[in-house]
Design a protein around this nucleic acid. Sequence first.
DNA 1: GAAGCTTTATAAAACGTTATATTTGATTAT
DNA 2: ATAATCAAATATAACGTTTTATAAAGCTTC
Lengths: 341, 341
Amino acid sequence: MKRKLSIVDLAKQLNISPTTISFILNGKAQEKRISSELVERVLKQIEKVGYKPNTLAQSLRTGKTMIIGLIVENIADPFFASIARLIEEKAYKNGYKIIYCSTDNDSAKAKDLLRMFQDRHVDGYIISPPEGIEKEVNNLIDNGSPVVLFDRYLPDTKADYIVVDNVGSTYDAVSHFIKNGYKNIAFITLDSLQTQMQGRLKGYENALNEHHLNHYVKKISFYEDDENIIKHIASFLEMNSDLDAILFGTNYLGISGLKAIKQLDKKVPEDLAVISFDDHILFELHSPDITAISQPIEEISEKLITILLGRLNEVSKTEKKQSDTLVPELIVRESSRKIKA
Amino acid sequence: MKRKLSIVDLAKQLNISPTTISFILNGKAQEKRISSELVERVLKQIEKVGYKPNTLAQSLRTGKTMIIGLIVENIADPFFASIARLIEEKAYKNGYKIIYCSTDNDSAKAKDLLRMFQDRHVDGYIISPPEGIEKEVNNLIDNGSPVVLFDRYLPDTKADYIVVDNVGSTYDAVSHFIKNGYKNIAFITLDSLQTQMQGRLKGYENALNEHHLNHYVKKISFYEDDENIIKHIASFLEMNSDLDAILFGTNYLGISGLKAIKQLDKKVPEDLAVISFDDHILFELHSPDITAISQPIEEISEKLITILLGRLNEVSKTEKKQSDTLVPELIVRESSRKIKA
DNA sequence: GAAGCTTTATAAAACGTTATATTTGATTAT
DNA sequence: ATAATCAAATATAACGTTTTATAAAGCTTC
């Protein structure tokens, strides 16, 4: 196990001071008026012996780690996994690494993770936050660490955020149902106060109210497992036999919902039309294929990383809160087809 | 931006030496015979002011970062995302964080990532390796960093690994086809020398040979995008109109394959029976649902982290290569149903 | 009453950088 | 002639820990 060589070793080899090498490596050769011959000589030796600065020492000294903390609800969810993948890629191109963790929407776990990330001195945060971590997030920002939220945001924080137009997109989805002749439209969603779920509910209600239609809302706890979700949805469907359409609030509710519908032997869209929030490969290949509200994943990731990198390079930390609301697309498929008249 | 307080600050507050605090914090109070009153007093103050050691300084001094580097083919692939999720969870419980990156099966990128992770002094590695990084992996091990491979392994390295019985599972899948009356069975796989793909091919061939059936193998480059994969599969199916069953070598080949089959308006399993490697939520809900070779994801993750943590706690690094081969399960569904006689 | 142990605690060096202040010798301005 | 500027490089302290070696004080023991 050979010890890696340090800047001091390198300095000894060249018979110069470590300081000089450090200046050269940090692009201060000109500013510090290091002669170009020396610069040349140093770079050549670095190349030759394959010297690499110790990032830990650099971080300890500078306070920068070039690591971004990514906190998502669940890395195994394809929506979050895709976002993670894109963020990883973009961060990597800018010299940043990602440390990630999943919260399971548990605020205690999220706080724990924030503490850990802080211990590790990550430079910035990208978070899909559970409720209840407002204080911790504000603390981070007050301590100079930029935080960008996504998917949902925390109104009582100074954190930047990127979200989508939840209200508008469920409004459009329900309107699409109505235009196609559906009248008894349910919304199966999470029992959650998070902004995105509130928005989705709002859009649903707005559309129904406009047409004076009945509301059928089923709220499911985040902490149920797949099997229980299916049971709840199935019994909700049985108890509301007049329903002719369902909007699902998230992709996994949609998936569990399809399982419930299958169990009940209902036909989509003849017995029950379906739209789900979040597109999924399954929705594309399902028979019939499922209409979905597709979030602009690429654009979300791009904006997230752009804002965060911007903050990281900012000189004065005074600039005010940044946010953006992107527009999802309703991908119309077979499952929400017109009722035969 | 308040500066965090250091062990020195704490020592000053208590009018004692930083050394003493360090000993106490590292559980050496007894060994170093620190009086229990002092221990008490120190712990109380730590609690009171919320002192947290700086992990960077600790890492610099000790050479340990408590970070595990996770290198997967693609974090957005549900197989890898699920593994990542489970590994994350188990690592977290043991005080380790995860840094992850995706390789896209690109050995140059993988080498780059290994270098980065090394720069960051990660304590150990979990890798689904592309070919061509044998030298780098051996270097890591020689330098004392444990490496555990999964999904595929590198025969020419000393790295531990966890894989599944690829040969046996595709053998079983093909045998299942044969038992159900299928005779012209294709294997659509990646054009790859990686051990898992070689194994899957082997199992396919073994089963066919046993029954003196024709081989139909289509190898697809890893670097094609979804659209092209579909085209290749579609044209392969058109050119081999006598086929009555297909085994797909990975989940995304299976998914693209289903799209191709849909485009060609073939019925599953009447025109074409289907089995795919790797289970997927889509396979469960597809009509008809798709028979799949399901890998024991939970068990894989468990063994990976167990081996790695074992290595990290090992005193002498002499113990020999560890490996394990787990057994996937063939989940039989509608798509490989018996041909009507 | 000196030598040797215990007990309890500490000083100082080290990990590998970077940033600030300083040195040295040469050149220019007054 | 001397003060002032400049070019080129360096010494040193600092970041916050851990570890090794050492100290101080009290107690035995002969």
